[in-house]
Simulated scan of single mutants.
Amino acid sequence: MDDVRGSRTQSEEGGRTVIREGGRTIIRDGDRSIIRHDETSRFRADSRDVQVQRRGRETVSTIVRPGGVRIVNTLDDDGRLLRRSRFDARGRELVLIDNRRAARPGVRRYVDLPPPMLRIPRDRYIVAAGAVSAAVIYETLSAPPVDRIERPYALDEIRYSAGVRDRMRRVDIDTITFDTGSWAISADQTSKLDFIAQAMMQAIRANPAEVFLIEGHTDTVGSDIDNLSLSDRRAEEIAIVLTERFGVPPENLTTQGYGEQFPKVAVDGPERENRRVAVRRITPLLAGKGPAR
């Protein structure tokens, strides 16, 4: 984190504090802080070619894979993902994420929703990966929303609105733990992601448009800005391992750090259970479909 801190610059833009560190941008807007980064680097491992073009005020990255499959990510000037598509070898497009609504002037990224009405046991709503079978993990990562979905939500609305995300069940990856101040995953821990990867691949085979959000979290040691950056890197590291070791397509994953905002254990100071990553399926939120059973 010392190197990360040393790379930061800070400015005031439109009444917001904007902190930049390499490929990440932290935005303080009133009492809220969010972080975003360009996920394109995660796509390079299995690519044959990466082409980056500037089109007006947008940056378009095209990742070409062996066999002619192309992944196209479109970003705005602020580095916000606007659209992600997969084109097969015949040029047919499958839109995975369309975030353009969130980029329109005057559209709020934050959606205030009440907690969902649960009709299932809480240990099946928030599942601890180390305590359940592969079948339960798949069930959790393929389940419909636990409460009614009012409309399609943009990716930014999902990322930055807990009430929206909480409509979907969650798997806490408690089999992976991080040292204080670190986002590294030791080699002996990567195999513990096997059940998560199996469940994702099974879901993607059934629906190639599935999207999973990987969420990073920290304990309260360190500054809130350091923790926001650290948590975002933890989420990205899990995504990288899922792709490079287990073959989960990177375009079906998106990552977001939340810092110390959502502790699993309500305690100040170092707490291993709060230095964690979680995953949930967000496809129904993006599509505005999938009524609760």
Results as ranks from 00 to 15, higher is better:
M1C: 01
D3I: 08
D3E: 10
V4F: 08
G6M: 00
G6R: 06
E13S: 15
G14I: 12
T25M: 11
I26W: 01
S33C: 04
D38G: 11
E39P: 12
E39Y: 09
T40W: 06
F43M: 10
A45Y: 14
R55G: 03
R65V: 01
P66V: 04
V72M: 14
L75W: 12
L81F: 12
L82V: 07
G91L: 13
I97T: 11
N99S: 04
N99L: 10
R100I: 02
R100V: 02
A103V: 02
R104W: 00
R104G: 04
Y110A: 05
L118E: 10
R119S: 12
P121Q: 05
A129N: 09
G130A: 11
V136M: 14
S142T: 15
A143R: 14
R167S: 07
I176M: 02
S182H: 08
A184Q: 11
Q189M: 05
L193V: 08
D194P: 00
A197I: 04
M201C: 03
N207Y: 11
N207W: 08
L213F: 10
I214P: 03
E215Q: 11
G222S: 12
S223D: 13
I225S: 02
R233I: 06
R234L: 06
E236K: 08
F246Q: 09
Q256I: 02
G257T: 01
G259H: 06
E260G: 03
F262E: 05
P263A: 10
D268K: 09
E271C: 09
E273V: 10
N274Y: 04
V277I: 01
R280A: 01
R280Q: 14
R281H: 05
G288A: 13
K289H: 08
G290N: 03
